[in-house]
Design a protein around this nucleic acid. Structure first.
Lengths: 225, 225
DNA sequence: GGTAAATCAATACGACTGTACTGAGATGTT
DNA sequence: AACATCTCAGTACAGTCGTATTGATTTACC
């Protein structure tokens, strides 16, 4: 399984060329352990074993455990960002705002293994952020950018007439984000299942978009009554 | 500071009479440490020092650390239950449903130190519950009873005509719970402040109760211009 | 070939962990 | 008085933790 024979690497020349790649591999091992056993159970030796390297190797790429954990948070955040941006780029202005909004919010519900894993990890980081200001700062930045995106979509929905104009975009976006995150948590701990979470989310969108339940109508011609 | 001289205790007779009381004192020490330094940083020795007893004493009252943590979760859950029930008992059927509902949901926002502390602890437990099925089970039970209460209030609101009849009580209650919990998390990590969380909550209640946005009656719902 | 940096395995260290064990006072029952 | 139980302080132990250190091997550039 030696993948170094190919040498078609991203920038295969020079010392330290594979540095970032190795760090990512280790970070992925860290995230896998957080997913299955929790952040507090993720020791340097466990991460090394999971990544298939030695303890010394992990130490070589991360000067301290805190640095490794912080990198892990940044790494999973970037993965999520990239996914949302890809989804947005694929359907910019053609789709109705409601569908785009829904696509983004659904990403916060653990509907499959991948999303469940990411949400478990995010929950672990959130708990640690409560006692680690440095992590909290990163978390805030993530929330901020996600909120800005949601608020932008709400405003766009108001322009197209899909959303009534008397809703404050900031508060509306914050409610959507909080609702989705809360639902995600409830599904994650097994209080609700994923379909129920989706139904609640859709019901809230019904409320926000002022529509009669279940939108199979076309946007654009809708006016506030 | 020996307060045992009083002997007006709950049931001061017989051996082991103060057993439950000692366990509560230790549990409170545990919760204080979780609040300030996190669940993973709460060692038996730290708890003992915080409670002002020896390590041996803690071991005497809890056979293992897991048992202590579980008791701590039950303890804080009962405290929250008691507070909600007291609040409900003080105003049963006279007040409009909206006010009662709001009172309960506000309890999930970290508006003061006490609530912030309890939510920090709850967040720590939630994270651990993701990798500890026994804790998850307790958490689910807590969610369940809270949800039942909220759903009951929603149904009552529909009877009194405050809430439109076409809302599914289960989904509506789940949305309220998830929204409040998500908002609480966002306030807790510093993404939003408490007044903003309250405003979002009130805006959602406006939406649910179909009312025009409440400028004159209720305080806290600020309209922006 | 020489040199320097990168890579990483191996080991050691002190601090800390949860748990187990011992024994001594206090308290209550018989 | 004898006995049992509760209470809890003290200590020891085996294990794990993050970190530091050392040294061997590889890689890249002069």
């Amino acid at each position: 399984m030696s993948e170094r024979a190919g040498r078609e690497g991203t920038r295969g020349r020079g010392l330290g060329a594979r540095h970032a790649e190795r760090r990512q591999r280790i970070a992925e091992a860290l995230l896998a352990i957080i997913d299955s056993r929790g952040l507090e159970a993720a020791g340097l030796r466990d991460v090394a074993r999971e990544a298939g390297v030695s303890l010394g190797a992990v130490q070589h790429y991360f000067r301290s455990k805190d640095e490794m954990v912080l990198f892990g948070l940044e790494y999973i955040g970037k993965r999520g960002d990239a996914r949302v941006r890809r989804r947005l780029g694929a359907s910019p202005d053609a789709l109705p705002v409601r569908a785009v909004l829904r696509d983004i919010l659904v990403e916060l519900l653990p509907a499959d293994d991948r999303r469940a894993t990411e949400l478990r990890i995010a929950t672990a980081f959130t708990a640690r952020a409560l006692v680690t200001p440095e992590l909290a700062e990163h978390l805030r930045r993530g929330y901020e950018s996600l909120h800005e995106l949601l608020a932008l979509l709400v405003r766009r929905g108001q322009v197209t007439g899909e959303i009534a104009g008397d809703h404050d975009p900031d508060r509306t976006a914050a409610a959507l984000l909080a609702l989705a995150e809360g639902l995600g948590t409830h599904v994650l701990v097994g209080h609700r299942d994923a379909p129920f979470g989706l139904a609640v989310l859709d019901a809230h969108l019904d409320l926000l978009f002022g529509s009669e339940p279940s939108a199979q109508e076309r946007p654009g011609t809708r006016r506030r009554e």
